[in-house]
């Protein structure tokens, strides 16, 4: 592939929540900024921009990763899912509904990232036990809930969706 010079803004072609998109991005643009500012998908939040808080977590080819630590250009050809993919119209996904029922969010700043991590976890390990859930959550900071309601919501969601497809 040819070199992209710093002032070029070529299109990045990827799939976002099942739809082909091709926004333009210079090499220095982060994936988190591409999603929020170029595409307007502001469900993905940005807290620290150094990988610590987890607010920006999205799924790239099914795996949860930090959007703030990926260059937009690195998304070329990837399949990306963000929190906007979870609900079916006005219908919350079982995971989202469990968060609501268990008061697993207050300000909601951390929530989008946590949902994307848990959604990926249950897709690959529908039987994930509490220790596994806690380990996955260790990659996220929440300053409001004290985590206990998040773990409860995750366990409830797991029991509800076990066996079935997650947000089909």
């Amino acid at each position: 592939m040819p070199r992209l010079t710093k002032d070029e803004k070529p299109a990045v072609r990827f799939t976002l929540n099942g739809r082909a998109v091709s926004p333009e991005a210079p090499p220095r643009m982060l994936l988190s900024d591409l999603l929020r500012h170029e595409i307007g998908a502001t469900g993905t939040h940005v807290g620290c921009e150094h990988g610590v808080c987890g607010a920006c977590t999205v799924q790239v080819d099914g795996a949860p990763v930090r959007a703030c630590l990926m260059l937009a250009q690195q998304a070329q050809g990837c399949d990306i899912r963000t929190v906007e993919a979870l609900a079916e119209g006005p219908e919350l996904s079982p995971l989202q509904a469990a968060f609501r029922e268990h008061f697993a969010l207050q300000c909601g700043f951390c929530t989008a990232g946590i949902l994307m991590t848990l959604d990926a976890l249950f897709a690959s390990q529908p039987e994930a036990d509490e220790a596994t859930i806690r380990e996955a959550l260790s990659g996220h900071l929440c300053r409001c809930t004290g985590y206990a309601p998040i773990v409860q919501a995750a366990l409830a969601a797991r029991n509800r969706i076990k066996g079935g497809p997650i947000d089909a």
Binding site: M1, L4, P26, P27, R28, L30, Q73, Q76
Partner: peptide, 9 residues
């Protein structure tokens, strides 16, 4: 945000 750079994939 990063300072500008050239990018070679």
């Amino acid at each position: 945000k990063p300072a500008p750079f050239d990018y070679v994939a």
